[in-house]
Write a protein that binds this DNA or RNA. Structure first.
Length: 491
RNA sequence: GGUCCCAUCGUCUAGCGGCCUAGGACGUCGGUCUCUCAAGCCGAAAACAGGGGUUCGAAUCCCCUUGGGACCGCCA
């Protein structure tokens, strides 16, 4: 792998560990990296931190790739896998060993664990005591002969401070006395996280490391490795964590945390992207950002340093906004998918409804529904060809389809029968029905709800005349007749 | 426990010493429109964690306290 630096174009990376899902917090980190790369014409690189070989399994990786694809965060290089770069880490560790910047450590995990426990019991910070740092070549040989396989530790300074210049935090100082000679290569030859990250970021020519806050404490260790390697460290930007409502780390018990779960719930990718961008980042008072605007306006300096709580209500508001303003045909296709996937409609029923009609359903409901799932559910009584598939809401029927309403509905049925197909449009239906009501000395108020319930099964929905137009004459009449039968059966 | 980070309405945030009797957005509540539900529009309640400094003047700068979070592995 060649070192690529100095091209003037930033190179950033998103480096998740393969966990089988992309957490919304991780998604935001990925988004910030992506926005930064796109804004500056740089490269967005994807890399999996899988020094645990067990983690390198397709089912742990694919959902992450799928999440990124769904969010539209396309990567320019990768995915790279640490598990495939083991020789590289060994090579670098070897170099540090030769230069005396690292040394082999023969302590066993058990010995170390005992020391750690003792330190904790004595309320001291558990730091490696440097036992193997002072070993003579003879002692090392003796230990090797015992069959001990050494890990490799880096030589850390024991005094002074290490300064991290962070774009969102400012200057952060760490006392080197808090650092110890930590392990960079395990006894089995695999690198530890901090070492692999630095070797990777260095060899991949990463210029800006934009990552979660939890890594801030790792930064001095990584800086130490950069120095040992004689490499120039990247610019660091640590973004705050995403928390749940109770101010703790967002986790499963708080509900949906994975990007794909939001997709399942009928959230639009542009809504999640917009929401995530505004979580911890802002541009004045603006709330709605197109992808292009985000790229144009994004800056690391405008990232807010404090942790942010994930607010589903606001996400839903944004989702509603994109449902209200999105292309009805595209939304219609998505709604059809959801109607089938969620079992609201059979594949055949969904196929029987044309694209045009799906788009129209979206237009009828877009102001009232906040997710694609809600849209799909609401669409059912509108698109099923069989009147028997219309489910009547018990409460709505009890309130609106009472026997005393029957004559009015009966009259309406008669009136509608006379409407020519060509005049079956919302404005013309409205004119006719209003005229007829006036002649009867009745008001629309008396008819609208009973009629709505009669033809859709529910007392809430789009405007009555739009509904009738959408259903069409034949369907409307059939449904009215069926409803009238229901009324007669009422006590 | 140690170290580090953070702190403006319930939530996301504007604010980077005077423009702040602190602005916007989500949510909440009220009104309006109306064939229902929504959407829209109008309006209301709602915050600078506390205490010291610095300064002619602090939400803004410094310190302490409190509260939250993160990290302390041959996990990542």
């Amino acid at each position: 792998m060649a070192t690529e630096t100095g091209t003037g174009r930033p190179r950033v990376r998103f480096a998740p560990s393969p966990t089988g899902e992309l957490h919304v917090g991780g998604a935001r980190t990925a988004l910030f990296n992506w926005l930064f790369a796109r804004k500056h014409g740089g490269a967005f690189i994807l890399r999996f931190e899988d020094t645990d070989v067990e983690r390198n399994r397709p089912e742990l990786i694919e959902p992450i790739l799928e999440s990124l694809r769904w969010l539209g965060l396309d990567w320019d290089e990768g995915p790279y896998f640490q598990s495939q770069r083991l020789a590289l880490y060994r090579e670098y560790a070897e170099r540090l060993l030769e230069e005396g910047r690292a040394y082999p450590c023969y302590c066993t995990p058990e010995e170390l664990e005992a020391k750690r426990k003792r330190a904790l019991a004595e309320k001291r910070t558990p730091l490696y005591d440097g036992t193997c740092r002072r070993l003579t070549p003879e002692e090392r040989e003796a230990l090797e002969r015992q069959g001990r396989r050494p890990a490799v530790r880096i030589v850390a300074p024991k005094e002074g401070v290490t300064v991290v210049e962070d774009v969102v935090r400012g200057r952060v100082e760490f006392d080197n006395r808090e650092l110890d000679d930590f392990i960079i290569l395990r006894s089995d030859g695999r690198p530890t996280y901090n070492f692999a990250v630095v070797v990777d970021d260095h060899t991949m020519g990463i210029t800006h490391v934009i990552r979660a806050d939890e890594h801030l404490k790792n930064t001095p260790k990584q800086l130490l490795i950069y120095r040992a390697l004689g490499a120039t460290p990247p610019v660091f930007a640590h973004v705050p964590m995403v928390l749940a409502k109770d101010r703790t780390k967002l986790s499963k018990r708080h509900g949906a945390t994975a990007v794909l779960e939001y997709r399942e719930r009928g959230i639009l990718p542009e809504a999640l992207v917009n929401y995530l961008a505004r979580l911890g980042w802002s541009h004045g008072d603006q709330e709605i950002f197109s992808r292009e605007e985000l790229i144009e306006k994004f800056s690391l300096e405008a990232i807010h340093p404090s942790p942010a709580i994930f607010d589903e209500e606001k996400l839903l508001w944004l989702n509603h906004h994109y449902i209200k303003t999105g292309d009805p045909r595209r939304l219609g296709r998505l709604v059809r998918e959801f109607a089938v996937k969620k079992g609201f409609l059979s594949e055949e029923e969904a196929q029987g409804v044309g694209e045009e009609r799906w788009a129209r359903v979206v237009e009828l409901f877009r102001e009232r529904k906040r997710t694609l799932v809600e849209l799909a559910e609401a669409a059912v009584p509108f698109v099923v060809p069989d009147p028997e598939r219309v489910e009547y809401d018990e409460k709505a029927v009890a309130t609106w389809l009472t026997p005393e309403r029957a004559p009015l509905l009966q009259g309406l049925l008669g009136t509608l029968k006379d409407v020519p197909e060509a005049e079956w449009t919302a404005p013309q239906l409205e004119a006719r029905i209003r005229a007829w009501l006036e002649a009867q000395g009745r008001q629309l108020k008396e008819l609208a709800q009973p009629c709505r319930v009669a033809v859709t099964g529910t007392d809430r929905g789009p405007g009555l005349f739009e509904t009738l137009e959408f259903l069409g004459k034949a369907q409307t009449l059939k449904r009215l007749e069926r409803a009238l039968q229901l009324v007669e059966k009422q006590p």
